[in-house]
Computed example of a mutant assay.
Amino acid sequence: MSKIKKSVYGFLRGSFLTDESAFKNWRIIIFVVGLLLVMISSSHKSDQKVIKIAELNKLKRELRAEYIDTGTILMRMKMESSIREKAISRGLRPSETPPKKIKVTYKDN
Results as ranks from 00 to 15, higher is better:
residue 1 M to I: 09
residue 5 K to N: 04
residue 7 S to I: 15
residue 7 S to W: 05
residue 8 V to E: 09
residue 8 V to L: 15
residue 10 G to W: 00
residue 12 L to T: 11
residue 12 L to M: 12
residue 15 S to L: 13
residue 17 L to W: 02
residue 18 T to Q: 03
residue 19 D to C: 14
residue 22 A to P: 00
residue 24 K to V: 08
residue 24 K to F: 05
residue 26 W to K: 13
residue 29 I to V: 15
residue 29 I to H: 02
residue 31 F to H: 12
residue 31 F to Y: 09
residue 32 V to H: 01
residue 34 G to D: 00
residue 34 G to Y: 02
residue 35 L to I: 03
residue 40 I to N: 05
residue 40 I to Y: 06
residue 42 S to D: 08
residue 43 S to H: 07
residue 44 H to Y: 11
residue 45 K to N: 10
residue 48 Q to N: 13
residue 49 K to M: 07
residue 51 I to Y: 12
residue 52 K to A: 15
residue 52 K to S: 15
residue 52 K to L: 11
residue 58 K to Y: 06
residue 58 K to R: 11
residue 59 L to I: 05
residue 61 R to W: 03
residue 63 L to F: 09
residue 67 Y to D: 10
residue 68 I to E: 01
residue 69 D to L: 06
residue 69 D to K: 13
residue 74 L to G: 03
residue 75 M to P: 00
residue 75 M to E: 09
residue 75 M to Q: 12
residue 76 R to T: 05
residue 78 K to Y: 08
residue 78 K to D: 12
residue 81 S to W: 04
residue 82 S to Q: 08
residue 85 E to A: 15
residue 86 K to L: 10
residue 86 K to W: 05
residue 87 A to F: 07
residue 88 I to Q: 10
residue 88 I to T: 09
residue 89 S to D: 07
residue 89 S to C: 02
residue 94 P to N: 07
residue 95 S to A: 12
residue 95 S to N: 08
residue 96 E to G: 06
residue 99 P to A: 15
residue 101 K to V: 15
residue 103 K to T: 15
residue 103 K to G: 03
residue 105 T to C: 07
residue 106 Y to F: 14
residue 109 N to H: 06
